[in-house]
Design a protein around this nucleic acid. Sequence first.
DNA 1: TCCACGGGGGTACTGGGTGCCATGTGATGC
DNA 2: GCATCACATGGCACCCAGTACCCCCGTGGA
Lengths: 275, 275
Amino acid sequence: MSEAPRPDRAADAPGPKPPMREALVAAAFQLFVERGYEQTTVDDIVTLAGVGRRSFFRYFPSKEDVVFPDHEGCLAEMTAFLRASRPAHEPVRRVCDAARLVLRMYAENPAFSVQRYRLTRKVPGLRAYELSVVWRYERALAEYLRGRFAGRPDGTLRADVVAAAVVAAHNNALRSWLRSDGRGDATAEVDHALAHVQGVFGPDRTPDTPAHDPAPTSALTPADGVNGTDGTNGTHQTDDDVVVVVSRRGAPLWRVVQEIETALGHAPARTTPAD
Amino acid sequence: MSEAPRPDRAADAPGPKPPMREALVAAAFQLFVERGYEQTTVDDIVTLAGVGRRSFFRYFPSKEDVVFPDHEGCLAEMTAFLRASRPAHEPVRRVCDAARLVLRMYAENPAFSVQRYRLTRKVPGLRAYELSVVWRYERALAEYLRGRFAGRPDGTLRADVVAAAVVAAHNNALRSWLRSDGRGDATAEVDHALAHVQGVFGPDRTPDTPAHDPAPTSALTPADGVNGTDGTNGTHQTDDDVVVVVSRRGAPLWRVVQEIETALGHAPARTTPAD
DNA sequence: TCCACGGGGGTACTGGGTGCCATGTGATGC
DNA sequence: GCATCACATGGCACCCAGTACCCCCGTGGA
């Protein structure tokens, strides 16, 4: 009951997917859209699928899990992706790329994703379950960032905040795409949203790394490069940015410069060349 | 089951708290710490409290709710606080102050909060429930910010991201305090974390203030207006701010004005005079 | 005295989730 | 060819959270 996502999945990500699992998902969704989630019992599902009730709970630890049959695998994919990171990767960019893995999963099956979105919006229990799933993604990102920010003064704080911001931006774009019933360019929307976050938090934007790192699958670097242009940061632009920095009159100049650099997504010119 | 927080609370925030409610909470926590949450049935609780089983569900819509007996009231407090906002309030600062309401609730009863924290860390079901509670706080903040950022190009995106960042920072500090068993200065920790977020997203204010910045007491309302001033936004300043504007060469003027207004915490002067 | 009303209690039911065991089946070993 | 084992499945029986329905009882007003 309500145990949220169990970590004890075995038949999720890898291995040959048994047809039983698919049959259960198909039967479940058919009934869910027909008569609603709460109005459908597990017995209904297994009856329609023609299997025993006990088998359902062998493939899904709870009724809610049948609605998110692919998240466990995606989470594993994300953790693997993050674990495979190298120090050369710019951290904020890296977690943005990790978030794109989730988008890819959704975009692989738009019709299914839209159906599920409608369900999770209506059913509070499913919404809560989805929150716990999202939370695990966020924790994965935060853990990675904590490692990368270790040693910094507010390392864990910044890690948590950046992870939350990335997830929020991703979900904002994702939900916008889902609300459009899968029409529209999900990748573009998410890229835009993540670029926003990178613009806020991405301090460096390592000029030496090539525009495309090898791993990250989807598009990611459309208008995201930004380039320092002529050295003066005043003429920076991504697209249509307008950056405003407000500082106290007595503030030290280096703070103003730092603010501008941060706002522009440049590497701090002075402070820590470390990261 | 697992329906997450129900909105249908009646005996939560206002009114004279019946002793029954307290008795149930006390009995529940006693058993929870003794033998664990999942090992305690509702029948155990009502037996210890000496009341009928049916009464439990009259006071708490679910077993999980007894662990968070005060959140519903706090959420109502937060929404009221946000609804009482005036346009003069700088939005980011306002949501930070709203978040401090949650901290205050925790800090009012450190021993209880620490006990609950230990529970929620161990029991996945409670963790999931807490996530849904936090989500409602975050939605409240985001909704407010969406209103304030309405009309901006990426208004909802920025609203969602800021809300998520504020919540993440608040929780980072709160959990740190809870892990210390309630020793330490919760207010200072949260102030520091929120100042970090304000430094990133807020118009003014430096990210990591070393000691304590003047404003952010948990009291909020007193010195909270900050700079409503006179309505003219051009020459606005709180005593001695200096404004730096970085803009793309071809940027439309309305965007620049909008950015400045937002940065200074003003309502958009052009679009809706309503706000 | 009667009735209305509201807080509390009891009982039975639904439905998610688990433990345990039986059964069928294919692969392996003697 | 038979025993064995592993494994997948089905079939109960059970626990417990949550709900619907009805009862009891005290109070207070007509």
